[in-house]
Structures are given as structure tokens and as C-alpha cells.
């Protein structure tokens, strides 16, 4: 059999997938919309490892912070009191907006397909939009890191902060959001689609916003 004929039959097989029963198509589409579940074996080993890492980090942080805390308690107050809150993504976004690292814009200003990647946020209270400068290669790595860790993020609706909506404009027309589970259904083109948050963006996104603020 020639490879050409083999490919032709494979094409026919691919075409025939159109005949898949609707209930199986519906089942598969629903599966893509379900929260990500990690295998229990992995979850168990990750839990143990994460506990050890958390314990180690706590120890190191305590050792590093303790002198500063002691110092502040004996009279050198003020420095820590004035340092900005960076504990949440919303707080980091607020800081970035105040420093104009995220600049006010309208949807028409956003370059959806100029080959560069941007972060766009919308303040849900004022409905104002803000866009970042184009991301560097290192900053793009943080976006990828967020995608790679997405399956570890909480996925229940209502868990993500409602203060801002956040999108990544990918430069090829596609728009995604780190507040949504990565799936084909959560990609749109050339517009800032409204959405209900499905997960908390990972710390990589917070790091990205902090980098934008610092630059």
C-alpha cells in the first residue's frame, strides 16, 4: 500500500469522526470544562514535599525577619508601616496602576495582534481599563509558568478576587486570562471577553505585575 493511499484512508477516518455520537461529543466537551484533578498518588507526594518546603521556607523567613521585627519593636517603626501591601494580586495591580506601570486605555487602544504580549486589567468598580507595556521574554516566562502551574490552583468559582478582571493579550489576536482554566474554550480573539473567575492566578502572575511596577 502506498503512503498516499494510507494517508487518504487516515483522512477518511478523521472525517468519519463527524459521525461520533452527540452524547460522546458532549461528554468530551464537558470534560474540558471540568476543574483539573490531579492523580491522588501525585497529590500525596506533592503534599508531603510541599509541607517540607513550606516548613523550610517558614524557618528561613522567620530567621530573616525576626531581627527586623525585634528592631522595629524597640523604636524604629515607620519603614515597614509604609511598605505597600503586596500580599494579593489585587494589591499588586493597584500598585501597578498607581505607578502607571498599567496605563489607562480604551479597548480600541489595545494592540491585539502586533506580535507582542500585553497584560490588560479592568477595574470592575470603575470599569476602567489599564494596559501594560509589551512583555519581555523573561516576563513571558512568568505567564508560561502560570499556565504550567494552573492545575494546582483552586478552581472553585467565587474564589478569585472580583476587584479586577485580568487578560493576557498574546499578540496573535488571541486573548486568554490567568483567572480561567486553560482550555480551548477559554480563548477568544480580538476582544476582552467578560468572564466569571474560575481559578486564582498563580504567584507567577503576581510576580509579573510586581516586575512591571518595578520597571
Amino acid at each position: 500500500m502506498t503512503s498516499q493511499l494510507k494517508t487518504r484512508l487516515a483522512e477518511q477516518l478523521f472525517d468519519a469522526m463527524d459521525g461520533i455520537d452527540d452524547k460522546y461529543l458532549d461528554e468530551a466537551a464537558r470534560w474540558r470544562d471540568k476543574p483539573v484533578v490531579r492523580p491522588s498518588r501525585t497529590r500525596k507526594s506533592h503534599a508531603a514535599r510541599n509541607w517540607l518546603i513550606a516548613a523550610a521556607i517558614t524557618l528561613v523567613v522567620t530567621m530573616a525577619v525576626l531581627p527586623a521585627v525585634l528592631q522595629s519593636s524597640v523604636g524604629s517603626r515607620g519603614v515597614n508601616a509604609e511598605s505597600p501591601d503586596r500580599s494579593t494580586l489585587s494589591a499588586c495591580i493597584r500598585e501597578a496602576v498607581s505607578k502607571q506601570a498599567l496605563a489607562p486605555c480604551t479597548e480600541d487602544d489595545i494592540p491585539f495582534a502586533d506580535g507582542r504580549t500585553y497584560v490588560v486589567v479592568r477595574d470592575t468598580a470603575s470599569d476602567r481599563l489599564y494596559v501594560s507595556r509589551s512583555l519581555s521574554a523573561e516576563e513571558l516566562r512568568l505567564v508560561t509558568k502560570d499556565l504550567n502551574t494552573s492545575s494546582q490552583q483552586p478552581v472553585a468559582s467565587g474564589t478569585a478576587p472580583d476587584e479586577f478582571r485580568i487578560w493576557i493579550v498574546n499578540g496573535d489576536g488571541t486573548v486568554t486570562s490567568p483567572a480561567l482554566k486553560p482550555s480551548a474554550g477559554n480563548v477568544d480573539m480580538g476582544c476582552l471577553f467578560d468572564y466569571e473567575p474560575e481559578r486564582l492566578p498563580s504567584d507567577a502572575i503576581r510576580d509579573l505585575i510586581l516586575r512591571l511596577s518595578a520597571s
Binding site: 469522526m17 463527524d18 461528554e27 474540558r32 483539573v36 484533578v37 492545575s151 486553560p182
Partner: peptide, 21 residues
């Protein structure tokens, strides 16, 4: 669901891996 998503919905392997664990 893996088979249907790959050969009907044309889903990338990486996405199937991410979703299935």
C-alpha cells in the same frame, strides 16, 4: 474523552495532559 478530544476537537496533547493530570 481523551480520544474524542484529540480526534474530533483536535485538542493539543499538552492540553489533554494538563487537564487529565
Amino acid at each position: 474523552v481523551l480520544f474524542v478530544n484529540r480526534y474530533f476537537y483536535n485538542a493539543p496533547i499538552a492540553e489533554l495532559a494538563g487537564r487529565s493530570g
